[in-house]
């Protein structure tokens, strides 16, 4: 039992950075913008978050700073794509190259610096419930925030007028434009949100998951986040499912190795990727449902024709 709880706790920390980044990308994509620069925005959030906590000693300020850093990085993308009509796929990839380089420059003085990690917040009363207490009510603030953001995003997209408009822009920018909505402005904001979420996802890595700075520490998690949005077929709830599934299998295969199971470790390391494909295959069979949620103008440039 203890080992199970411990494993679940590890899974949560492994899934949280993916969850943040994927959630942000989902909102960006819902508005019709495909930003492949998640990795670049994440790593900028990671270094700025770490740098700030080192300077100010405040986890809260550091998290805010990481969100701003992610959003600023996303701004470069948004200006190029939305103002200068650059194509989205290569611009996102260029953003990743740029972000990894810039973060390494900024981080030169942070190598070898230690940080004890953001504190855990036990919710009084609830955290003492056996089993559940430890899993649900004794986490660091960012884990609570990630779950809050899942619910908030779900509510925003499905229950608010602004969310409806955002989805309309993503589905048919021409129609939304005709109705008088500013497609560019909405997409800009959605892209910034995606950047901020990627930034905080990166900060989770450098402030909580493994609180230190090393170059390239995101190690491809931005790509996994991108895949999770596809996996979720643009549904918020499924992003949560996907992040925990991916994190879960990653951790369980480590446990399986520690148990001494005689399967080559390379095959064990393949499992999260294979499982994600398998589950996607199972849940993708209903074409109409996927069409319902996927933004129809995703990745297409908007040229207002007045």
């Amino acid at each position: 039992m203890d080992i199970l709880i411990a494993a679940i706790l590890t899974i949560i920390t492994a899934a949280t950075p993916l969850l943040f980044a994927a959630l942000g990308e989902l909102v960006t994509e819902k508005s019709g913008v495909l930003n492949l620069g998640i990795e670049g925005m994440m790593i900028m959030g990671a270094i700025i978050g770490f740098f700030t906590v080192h300077q100010t000693d405040s986890a809260f300020i550091a998290i805010i700073a990481s969100m701003i850093a992610g959003a600023l990085t996303a701004t470069i993308f948004a200006i190029l794509v939305l103002k200068f009509h650059a194509s989205q796929v290569p611009t996102g990839l260029a953003l990743t190259i740029f972000g990894i380089g810039l973060s390494a420059l900024i981080g030169q003085s942070m190598i070898g610096v230690a940080y004890e990690g953001i504190p855990k917040i036990a919710i009084p009363g609830l955290s003492s419930i056996p089993v559940i207490g430890d899993i649900f009510f004794n986490q660091d603030g960012l884990v609570y925030f990630s779950i809050f953001m899942v619910v908030a995003t779900m509510w925003f997209l499905n229950k608010t007028r602004a969310g409806l408009i955002l989805r309309a822009v993503g589905d048919s920018h021409d129609a939304a434009h005709a109705m008088g909505y500013s497609v560019i402005k909405i997409r800009f904001l959605a892209t910034l949100f995606g950047g901020a979420m990627a930034g905080v996802g990166g900060a989770y890595l450098s402030l909580a998951y493994s609180p230190l700075w090393v170059e390239g520490m995101t190690a491809g998690r931005g790509w996994i986040a991108l895949a999770l949005v596809v996996f979720a077929s643009w549904r918020v709830g499924r992003v949560l499912l996907g992040a925990y599934l991916f994190g879960g299998i990653t951790i369980l295969q480590l446990h399986a190795q520690a148990l001494g199971i005689a399967v080559p470790s390379q095959i064990m390391s393949m499992l999260p990727y294979l499982a994600t494909i398998l589950v996607l295959v199972i849940i993708s069979r209903d074409k109409s449902k996927i069409k319902l949620n996927s933004p129809a103008s995703l990745g297409k440039a908007f040229h207002p024709s007045r």
């Binding site: 411990a6 493994s210 520490m217 190690a219 480590l254 520690a258």
Partner: peptide, 27 residues
């Protein structure tokens, strides 16, 4: 001695996870 391979020289997150898994299993 229990061994966990992370198939990477360098991935702080994964290395930390491997440490957690080993500790959880009694190390």
């Amino acid at each position: 001695v229990k061994v966990v391979w992370v198939n990477s020289w360098f991935d702080p997150g994964k290395e930390g996870d491997a440490a957690k898994a080993l500790i959880d299993q009694g190390a």
